[in-house]
Design a protein around this nucleic acid. Sequence first.
DNA 1: ATCGTTTATGACAACCTTGTCATAAAAGCA
DNA 2: TGCTTTTATGACAAGGTTGTCATAAACGAT
Lengths: 334, 334
Amino acid sequence: MPTIIDVAKRAGVSFKTVSRVFSGEDYVREETKMAVLKAARELDYKVNVSARTLRAKRSNKVVLIGSNPSPNYRNLFQLGALSACQDAGFDLVLKSEFDESEIQKLVLSDKPVGIVLLPPASGEISILNSLEALGVPVIRVGAYPETGSGGYCIYIDDDAASFDITQVLIQAGHSAIAFLSGPLSQLHAQKRKDGHLRALQSAGISPKEDWVLEGNFDFKSGFALADKLLSSKERPSVIIASNDEMAAGCLAAAYKNNLRVPEDLSIAGFDDSPIAQVIYPPLTTIHQPVKEMAIEAIKLLDVVNRKKETGNAAIKLDYEVKLRGSTKFIETTT
Amino acid sequence: MPTIIDVAKRAGVSFKTVSRVFSGEDYVREETKMAVLKAARELDYKVNVSARTLRAKRSNKVVLIGSNPSPNYRNLFQLGALSACQDAGFDLVLKSEFDESEIQKLVLSDKPVGIVLLPPASGEISILNSLEALGVPVIRVGAYPETGSGGYCIYIDDDAASFDITQVLIQAGHSAIAFLSGPLSQLHAQKRKDGHLRALQSAGISPKEDWVLEGNFDFKSGFALADKLLSSKERPSVIIASNDEMAAGCLAAAYKNNLRVPEDLSIAGFDDSPIAQVIYPPLTTIHQPVKEMAIEAIKLLDVVNRKKETGNAAIKLDYEVKLRGSTKFIETTT
DNA sequence: ATCGTTTATGACAACCTTGTCATAAAAGCA
DNA sequence: TGCTTTTATGACAAGGTTGTCATAAACGAT
């Protein structure tokens, strides 16, 4: 493997200049830069990450902490993050849970480029604070800038998305609408509920208290709650779940109760995770650009890494209502 | 952060001796070793991986190449590999696909501890050969020692597992059995089919040609094939799919065709991936110890890494038939 | 023309570990 | 005993990069 010195010789400059080119330092003439890059290309030079890390006391690791209960969401995010990391030359290190002392050790010994937090960890202020104290850039996915003082946030407008999907279902002729929220201690779960209620209100529908239930973002709670809803006398015509896992649970409960979807019951989810299309009928849901969020997260870290200073920013991405087979359009007799 | 030198001072030995202790070299008195470890503990010393990698020209990266079409299988394996890597002090680098030139570059520049291949890449001899030529240890998951000359194999007996689940269903009273195989170019897909046919034969059931179909290990092909099976005149009483994704597709097709599972149709899968319990009814399937396979894979690499030499071995793990709600036991009127 | 500032480049040390070689003590053997 | 071999430890260099400092040229302002 060629080193910086080989490239320097070939380009006729000092090895320090080559270093400058590859570490993105200033003060290299455009002409010199080109010559260096040409020489590097000819030799197929690759920077030695270990040496760089050793000297610069900064690794190329990105730590992804994913304690999200939905494996589909996690998996999708990982995939996006993975390819973005490959492009940026970062190593993706996965941690399944947030363990303060472990992370602290990791940060101190490895000096990672940054830490990406998935919900619900991304919403916990105590976590944010302890990471900021370590001076490591933090990207919070699915968290809002109004929570916590700093860090970088990447999010969608959960409130508006929930409003939209509810509105669409109302326009489809539904009025007996049940809603399964996530744990309300999580801000995005709360926002999804808020948006839903707002849509009901603006349509003049008063929410039935028994039909707004709190789940846990997983299949099991979705199944249990929907089973309860469907086995009682008065049934909703549609259940909106706050994520796709819970929606899958609703679907299961429907079949258990001998109801056909969407003929007897409509179901909607949230996330558009892979599971949405691996069940029958495919799920009406909110498409969240999870992969794009991952890519933005890594891009952000790349910028922060180059600038060598931490700041803060918030990126709001667009969502999309996906109408699929799990919801029925009721003919309104006008 | 303390270095090897700090530890050496505290323990009253040379830094080289400390290095010996941490890199597992021979020729350190037990007594000295203990003193070093004590000093290291007191200082909370951690080896600097970059420095080690730089000097030893060997990284602590494990490359996991997962081109498996079942995201659930991949995800589960990743999780197991991840925690095992953390224990062993390895970094897990994920690659979604096998790209010969990319991998070659990676091996040459990073000198990874080893490469873990998931199916179907693990079964392709050309891949194995090109990796062996690079001299990097290869762990093949779901591949058989009889394929290819070397490397390390971790697998289950697909033939026997398929035999067993088929036999269980026959004993449950089924005789109209359809089977969806994976792509027969993949050896484990072929074995699952073989085991199935063997079980039919040993029960004196002659397989219907139209009921043994080749799918692609994904939801879509499972759905399409089952839809075809179920919309024809003569229906099987059970469909055995070669993995859970395809079984989920069968379930969807059943609902589409207005059939109740398991009342009108039984379904069985293979893998016991998370999806098996996130559908309704939960899937009768073969539990594959995917996490254990991942852990074994990393353990193997750890051993190989310490010995600094590549050999070969094969580890066969146990499977288990999981009977769940998706299959019906037919009362036999004796 | 002179001086201060910015731009561009180089020389050299430092980062922390492992590899190589040297050396001394202990053990094995004739 | 005297010799070779094994065990145990240390001194020192090397690995490829970036940080620091020095220096020279180019530029701008007086």
